[in-house]
Every structure is written in structure tokens, then in C-alpha cells.
Design a protein around this nucleic acid. Structure first.
Lengths: 338, 338
DNA sequence: ATGAAAGCGCTAACAC
DNA sequence: GTGTTAGCGCTTTCAT
């Protein structure tokens, strides 16, 4: 199967002594073609290494069978990966798209602005967009929805949203974390995570709700930090512990497993043990959480299903339907060495 | 900027009272068009939300300005991520492609066979391919090269290779790890990693070379395991430690940081401390290695540059040049708590 | 500096 | 079941 350009559908047609449309039908398994013709065409195509020109096909059908996927690579440069979780999600989406024979166009950071994104659709580069991670882009989503761009978002799911979202039940996840920490008899809480991010903010609210139900008095403080990397989390945590030894927390809920790991390190440096002195709960159940020492108690979600759902809903949207948002179950995964 | 299909170049031409080719030239900043005409056209396009149809463009130019990226998602499903390192690489590639205004087509697991891949090129879906990770695909690479498909590989770099590769100096990395462990006075070595993978095998060979230079007698064993996940590594490590307490290693070189982490856990369970009883060296310097407890000594490489190089070489290849392979420096990153 | 004509490779619409 | 005709939206000649 040698690759030479220039082998076109017309060539195959000529060789098979049929017309171009017949070749087209044969290759696409149309029932309108006799098995003999089909076989003849198929064999010829195989023999000459012929493959339909996707660009011509797309132009003609005015459909690209391509989905653009946007993820927040910005925070992934220079090793500042916030959480490997998002890549599991990408793998799930990739697989789901593959099953539907849709191509996956991965958008570069530069293409993350709303104009570029709607341009991708307008230029027929993709039929729809999947955003992996909401971040601070909610206003963009509202605008895109108003423009009629077909897209779905992995992020927080709320009522009266003008677009379709799939996300874990962040509030419930935070609530579960809070309950778990209360069950451990903890009272001085620390929340770690950037609340400007909507999904993170909801996790915090879940925590607050759990604390509100407690009989005993509790105290909640926030770890404010610049950026989301391990390094900055670690630094902020160390500074906090140093500054006020008296109010060091005995319970930590971190909005990502990586942040939780950084915090456990900082606590260890200060001579505090986890889970002895401080209980910690993370989020996402990243591969690695299980093998961290100490093993990380965390909130897990079904990434594989998330990918499948995102794709399914987007396809519906592209076909003109209006898919509903879905909130995925979250579960507490307790990992105590004792 | 409302999205309505149907706004075509012809429409803009009519509105500007010029011809289609002129609009085309104006939009592509051709010097053959007067500034006034250009401005007129640009404004009209802006006003009507016109964007050129990429598919028509690609068909006409018989160039897709798209690069296919293949990564081994198979081992990433079901949380069986071998190493987040590969995603840093993806981020680097994505950025480099973005700078050259090339689209990134992320290939699904199903498209990983050689026929599908050359079909992607033949069908003008992409102009070239970047493989992130060599794995066991070397025979495919040789075939693809013979077919004249433009591609580059992140993997091991060797002499007399029929294709262009970019990779870290795996042998040297292994050598550095070996030296470091010998410097620690260790003698009972364990290598962890699947040697069927070429790059992994080279790391092992580097280790062997370092050991061969030692004055003192050394012993090297291998941890054989099924798969590459944390879980299986951990399990295999535990089984090994259990089975023969007498020959438990005092030096471990793991071909990935994640494997190193799993091993440290297993050692810890068995009452062995790192780096007290056992010295461990990982590979890749993943974000997280620094904050693991104990902080992980590892072999690092410049992912950002790797991405840029891969893209640069592929573009050369597409333009008909024959870019040389490049081996990137590796460095030992020592992180000892003491 | 601009326009007219042609055609990239394919498929939809219709005819038979 | 198959062929004919037309055209998707763009860019590349080649003219002027």
C-alpha cells in the first residue's frame, strides 16, 4: 500500500468501468450497489492505496465530523500541572469520540478565546466543542451559547444554566469530605483551593454545609495562594503553619489531590503527622493517591462515564436537540493506614 | 458576531464590489491588494462574522495544516496511567504547533494501527504524525518510513534509524542513576520497568554499564510485572519483598517516577525506609516527584524543548527535508531529605 | 492591482 | 442499480 497522492476517485471509477458516484456509494457501503460492484471497487481501492479525500468530503457534506476539545493547558506549562485528573478525562473523551468516528481537534492555548472558538465552528473546522474544565470561563460560555455554538462543558452543573454541562456533584463531594472530617472528631478546618473557580467554590460550599450541621463548634479558614501549583501550595501552607502555630488546622479539605499532597508534605515538615494529628481529604482520586504515603482519602468520580456523557450530549446538541445537563455521583474513598 | 453559515466569500466580494480572488488576497494579507481594499474587505468580514471555510481551503491547497498526534491512551484507561510525563510532552507539542498555526488532531486508540495512520495522511486529514512514546511500535515506524509518511517519534534515538526521533539520552540517564546509587554505597540493585519498551531497555543498559565500572561486586535483579500501573508495580514489589527477605535490594532504579513511588510504598510497608535502607531513583521528574515523601531523586529532561523539537523536525520533514534525530540531555536531580 | 475562468475531489439530486 | 449533471467554497492560473 504505497502512498501516492493523485489517486483519485475518478481513477478508481475508470479502472472499475463505473462512474464516480458508484465508487462513492460502494465505499460507503450503500445498499444501492451490487455486492459485485462493491467488491470490485473495494479491491481496486485497496490495491492502489486509495482513500477518500476527507477535505473534499467535508466540503461537500458541510460537516467536519470533528470535535474541538479545549483544555486549560496554560496552567500545565512549565510543569505547573494542577491535576492529572483532567487527562484521564481527555482519554475518556478521546475514546468516546473514536467510537463515533469523530476526529478530536485539540485546541492550543492561543485558540482559547471566544472569537477563535466560534471561528473554529464557523470555518467548519469542527462541529462542536468540549471544554474540559470550567475555570473562570463561565462568561464565555454564556456568550457562546447565545451565539448558538454547539458545546458542552465539564464543570459545575447548575439550574438555569444556558448551556449543557456535565460535572461531578461538587457540593455533595465537599459535603462528604466535611462529614468524614467531622467523624474524625476534627474541628479546626482548612480549605485549600482557588474559590474563583466555580467548581472549587461549590466544593467549599458543600464543606460549609456539612460543618453547619455539626453539633460542636467548628472553625474554617482558607489557604490563599497565588496559582495552583504544588510549589505555591506548599509555600503558602508552610507560611501559614509558621505564622500561627496556635491555629494550625486539624482537618484539611483540598480541592485537588495534588494540593492535598503538597499540604501533607508541608504538615510533615512542621512535625505534624497525617492522619494522626491532621486528617486530610483530597479530590479526584488521581492515580497515585492510592500509593501516596499516607494513602490519600479523597473524593472520586467516574471519569470514563464522564467522557462518554460529554460526547453523547454534544452529538445530540449538534443534531439540534437540547440535551440536559447531568450531575455525576461522587463518592468518598477512605484510605486510612490504621 | 452571529454565526450564520451561508456567508461565503462570494457574499463578501459582492458587498465590497470586488471579485472573489481579491477578497481571498485581502484576507491573506497579500501585498497585491491596496490597503483601502484590504480594510474594506476586513471590515465587512468582521461585520458579518465571515471566516474562510477551512475545508474548502484545505481541498484547494491540498495541505491540511494539521498534525496528527498519537499517544498511547490504551494504558491510560481505567486509571492505568503509566506516567503523567507524557502529558507534559503533549502540552509542549500543542504549544509548538499553535505557534505555527497547525491544528492538532489527537488520534484515538482505534486509529493506532499502521493502516489507519497512513490513511490519515493519504486522506489529507493531516500532513504528518507525531508519536509520543515508542512502546513496542518500532516495526510500525519502519513500515511507515518505508511508505514515505512524514512523522517523528518521541522515543529512543539510535544510529541507522530509518526515521527521525527525538528522545532523552536513556542510556546516559540509566548510567547517571547507576552512578548515583553506587555513590551511595549500594550493591544489591533492582531495576523496575518493562524492558520490552525500547526506551526502558536502554535505561537498563545504562544502569548495567554503570555497575560494570564499579570496583565492588554488585548484583542486579529485575522486577517482572504484568502491566505498568501503580497497582501492579506495588503488588509485584510486595510479592518480591515477601518472597525473599534476604535479598531485598538496597538500590532501586525505576524507569518512571510513578513506578518509583509505588516501590517506595511497598518498601515502606515492609519496614524499609527510603533513603535510609534503600536508595531509589526514578525517571522523568514528574510534577509531584518533588513533593513526594521522601522527595524523589530522579532523572529529568526538558519537556518543553522536546515538544518544540518534535514539531520543528516534523515540519522540515513535511517540506521534504530529512531532519536528523536529536538526543536531549538528561540530568540527575538529587533530592535527599538529609 | 484586479478580474474571469477553471478546477481541487467529492456527493446530492435527479434521471433512467 | 447506475450514470449525468451540478456545485460545495476556495485559490490558482492567466489575463488585463
Amino acid at each position: 500500500m504505497k502512498i501516492r497522492r493523485s489517486v483519485t476517485m475518478e481513477d478508481i471509477a475508470r479502472m472499475a468501468h463505473v462512474s464516480k458516484p458508484t465508487v462513492s456509494r460502494a465505499l460507503r457501503n450503500s445498499p444501492l450497489v451490487t455486492p459485485e460492484t462493491r467488491k470490485l471497487v473495494m479491491d481496486l481501492a485497496q490495491k492502489h492505496g486509495y482513500v477518500v479525500n476527507r477535505n473534499a468530503q467535508k466540503l461537500r457534506q458541510s460537516r467536519s465530523d470533528t470535535i474541538a476539545v479545549v483544555l486549560d493547558f496554560k496552567s500545565h506549562r512549565e510543569n505547573r500541572i494542577s491535576d492529572p485528573f483532567i487527562f484521564n478525562l481527555l482519554a475518556g473523551v478521546s475514546e468516546a469520540l473514536g467510537q463515533r468516528e469523530q476526529d478530536l481537534l485539540l485546541c492550543a492555548p492561543g485558540h482559547a478565546e471566544i472569537e477563535s472558538l466560534s471561528a473554529i465552528i464557523a470555518s467548519r473546522g469542527a462541529d462542536g466543542i468540549i471544554f474540559l474544565g470550567e475555570g473562570e470561563r463561565r462568561p464565555d460560555f454564556v456568550d457562546l451559547a447565545a451565539l448558538g455554538v454547539p458545546f458542552v462543558v465539564w464543570g459545575s452543573v447548575e439550574q438555569d444554566q444556558s448551556y449543557c454541562a456535565v460535572g461531578s456533584d461538587n457540593f455533595h463531594g465537599g459535603f462528604l469530605a466535611g462529614q468524614h472530617l467531622l467523624d474524625r472528631g476534627r474541628s479546626r478546618f482548612l480549605f485549600v483551593g482557588d474559590s474563583r473557580f466555580h467548581e472549587i467554590s461549590q466544593r467549599r460550599q458543600g464543606l460549609v454545609a456539612a460543618l453547619a450541621k455539626s453539633d460542636k463548634p467548628t472553625h474554617l479558614s482558607d489557604l490563599i495562594m497565588d496559582g495552583f501549583s504544588y510549589a505555591s501550595t506548599l509555600e503558602a501552607a508552610r507560611a501559614m503553619i509558621e505564622s500561627d502555630k496556635a491555629t494550625v488546622p486539624d482537618a484539611v479539605f483540598a480541592a485537588s489531590d495534588t494540593a492535598a499532597m503538597a499540604l501533607i508534605s508541608a504538615l510533615g515538615d512542621a512535625g505534624l503527622s497525617v492522619p494522626g494529628d491532621v486528617s486530610v481529604v483530597g479530590y479526584n482520586n488521581i492515580p497515585g493517591a492510592e500509593y501516596f504515603s499516607p494513602p490519600l482519602t479523597t473524593i472520586g468520580q467516574d471519569v470514563h462515564m464522564a467522557g462518554a456523557l460529554l460526547v453523547e450530549k454534544l452529538m445530540l446538541h449538534i443534531e439540534g436537540r437540547a440535551p440536559a445537563s447531568t450531575m455525576l455521583d461522587t463518592r468518598l474513598i477512605v484510605r486510612e493506614s490504621s
